[in-house]
Amino acid sequence: MDFDVLRRNVLEAIKKTQDVKGLEQIRIKYLGRQDGELIKILRSLKDLSVEEKRKLGPAANFLRNELEAAFINKLENLKLKIRNSQSNLDVTLPGKKVPVGHLHPLTLMENRIREIFQSLSFSVVEGPEVESDYYNFDALNIPANHPARDMWDTFWLRQKVQSSKFKVQSLLLRTHTSPVQIRYMEKHQPPFQIIVPGRVFRYEATDATHEINFHQIEGLMVGEDVSLANFKYIIEEFLKQLFGKNIHFRFRPSYFPFTEPSLEVDIQLGGKWLEVMGAGMVHPKVFDAVKYNSKEVRGFAFGLGLERLAMIKYKIDDIRLFYSGDLRFIKQF
């Protein structure tokens, strides 16, 4: 047979084949080890004269290599096509649900707030949830037997602690994160700026806006020349980053025993003013309690409610949802 004809036939057949099976049949027909047409020709070469062998041999081998390469090439092509085509896949079907966990909205809110304050050079510290009345009240200029303490409805523990030979201290669930101000200042010297996220407790009836446990973030910046105007700068940066550049906010006079002057911060959302934070300049008696020289240092402190901010930000209308453990709620975040 003419090599050229054979060559044309085989290449034509390869070209026409559309599946792996058909390709394999063609391969067996021409290159099959037993009865492949080209193989038979190659085998018959041994019966030819040396001269003919020299003439046809290389041509036959060349053809064999060429065809084998063509088969492999086509096979690769077909395989690639199969991989790409997936002819029976409906690509419009919905994507498979890959299980992913969701973080609690209060965690997301806290993370965001921590990020913002860390970018403003505040460090993050924490403190215990069970406190003594000294740290929760006395050191913060909230004396015993004064109705000012009634501003914080308190859970008390049955257990008391002996703080010194004569003094028994009452234990309570901290009503705010402010005791950590005292704990931190007892161990560190200014200048510094910290935030303190944490869980706090109030003995009060629960409803859509009140819970017996909730979360606060306390802030404290102390140095030689810290001012109320510095507080305004920091809090403006914070509010802009959290609620967007166009956020409007205002200060109002307020009262906290541990700050002087004291103020309240409101933000405007949807035409309404919402109270979001209490703040002020650290009261000199608080500095006295931690043995700072209140004539030489100044500072501002603030406290904000995490639930309240999360409710505003995510438009949640009932604080109790945060503690429901209901995944239909959690998975929305």
Partner: peptide, 8 residues
């Protein structure tokens, strides 16, 4: 998924 429960 993360949940928060009461401390009581």
């Amino acid at each position: 998924n993360e949940v928060y429960n009461y401390s009581f």
